[in-house]
Amino acid sequence: MTTPVIELRDVSRRYDGGPPALHEASLTVRPGEAVAILGPSGSGKSTLLNLIAGLDRPDAGTVTVDGVRVDGLGEAASAKYRRTRIGMVFQFFNLLDDLTVADNVALPALLAGTARAEARRRTAELLASLGVARHADAYPGRLSGGERQRVAVARALVNRPALLLADEPTGALDTTSGEDVSKLLAELNADGQTVVVVTHDLALARSCTNRTIRIVDGHVTEENR
C-alpha cells in the first residue's frame, strides 16, 4: 500500500477558549488523489488548510505530509517544508507585482537553492505547459485574472511538490476563467499531481476532484459522490 501524502490523526484545534475549530479530525489522502474540502465560512476548513501547510499547529493529534511530521516542525523547518513539499494557490494570486511573470515563478526554486539555470528551465517549461509562456516578461498587473492564476499554479509547481493545495482558487475569477482554472486542476491531477482544493463551491469540487470531505463545526466527514 502506498504511503499517504496527507495523514491527520485525531487532530483538534481551539482558539482563545472558544469552541473547537477542529475536533478529533482524521484524514488520509493518497498519492494521485484529487480531494475537495468543503464547508461554509467558520466550519474549520481554513484551520485544516493551515495545519496541512504548517502555518498552524494542532492542540492534539498529528499531521504528517509526504512523510514529514509537520506538527513538530520549528519555524525554519516549516518554511523549508512549504518550499519543497507543497505548492499553494490562493484566491487572490499573491503574485509580486514588481517581478515579471518568469521571476515570480522562478523565485520559490531559487529560495530552495535550485541553480538559476535549472530554475529558469523549469519556469519556461511550466509557463509553456500552462499556456502563458507569451507573458514570461510581462508584469502580473497586465494579465487577466485567469492568466494570473495560471502563473500562480506554475509558481506552486516549480519545486515539484508532492501536494498542491488550492484555497478557493476560482473565488476571484469570472465564470469563464473559473472554469478554465478548474479544468487545469483536473488536468494536473490526471497527470498524477495530488491536489487538495479547499472551497465552499460544490460545482468546483465536482468539476476537478473525485472525492469530497465535508467539514461542519470542526467535524470532518467523508461525503459520497
Rank of each mutant, 00 (worst) to 15 (best):
P40F: 02
V220W: 00
E223W: 12
E75D: 15
T221M: 09
A162F: 01
G178S: 12
R150S: 07
M88D: 05
T175C: 06
T199W: 09
L27N: 07
G171C: 07
K45C: 11
A53L: 03
L110E: 12
T3S: 12
G178R: 04
A133F: 04
L49Q: 04
D71L: 01
G32L: 13
A119Q: 07
T176C: 04
D66V: 10
L99I: 10
V132A: 12
L126E: 09
G32I: 09
A128D: 15
R214L: 13
A190C: 02
A133P: 10
L127R: 07
P169I: 10
G171L: 04
D71Y: 00
V181Q: 09
D59C: 01
I215W: 05
V89W: 02
P40A: 15
D191Y: 01
E118L: 14
G44V: 08
R30Y: 08
S41H: 05
S129Q: 15
G39V: 11
R13H: 13
G218C: 05
L111H: 05
E223Y: 10
L157A: 09
T209V: 07
V153K: 01
G17D: 07
R82H: 05
G42W: 05
L143F: 09
A156L: 02
V5K: 02
L8F: 00
E7R: 15
E147K: 07
S129R: 15
